[in-house]
């Protein structure tokens, strides 16, 4: 297996090798299930389930959450939720094999504090979460899986995410450089 060194002690896959593997996973997923892998859909299911448990009448009357409760089944009983649990355990497995699992820690650019990094992560996640709902999926489910099967919407989301990232990179450079 080809590897290159990174962060001193940890090793990553050769990115092109990783990319080929990921492409094969995309093909296999569509070939077996007729759909592509995703991730944000699982968090949406978790949100809908949480609202439904805490305030069932509110969930039923909400024009968005109620869409995912219509069939009477738990929203957690969905393909993306199981697949996302797989993503977590797959990451865990890779972390064990490559020796990257450590105590809970905050990774950040040394020029910012861990508190700043945590706030940025929370705020960034919030925007990303809102964006996934308008975008009908995230980098995995919309951009990657969509573009893989030549979906225009998937391609649009891919271009939009990366173009915005580059357009705004200058404004947020202190977080990363």
């Amino acid at each position: 297996m080809s590897e290159h060194k990174n962060n001193g002690s940890t090793k990553y896959l050769n990115p092109y090798f990783g990319g080929v593997l990921l492409g094969l996973v995309l093909i296999a997923t569509f070939f077996i299930t007729g759909r592509g892998p995703g991730a944000s859909g699982a968090v949406k299911s978790l949100v809908v389930e949480t609202v439904d448990v805490v305030a069932p009448s509110h969930a039923e009357s909400n024009g968005y959450f109620s869409r995912f409760l219509a069939d009477g089944k738990s929203p957690l009983n969905s393909w993306l939720v199981f697949e996302s649990m797989g993503i977590f355990f797959g990451g865990l497995l890779s972390g064990v094999i490559f020796g990257r699992i450590k105590k809970f820690r905050v990774e950040h650019n040394p020029n910012i504090t861990s508190k700043t990094r945590l706030i940025a992560a929370l705020v960034g996640g919030m925007f990303f979460g809102i964006g996934t709902q308008f975008g009908r999926g995230c980098t995995s489910g919309a951009a990657m899986s969509g573009t893989a099967v030549f979906s225009f919407g998937g391609f649009l989301v891919m271009v939009g995410i990366f173009a915005t990232g580059y357009a705004l990179a200058w404004f947020f450079r202190k977080l990363w450089l």
């Binding site: 979460g129 964006g131 995410i161």
Partner: peptide, 9 residues
Amino acid sequence: IMGLGFIIG
């Protein structure tokens, strides 16, 4: 919006 979240988070 996702691009914004990506560059911040």
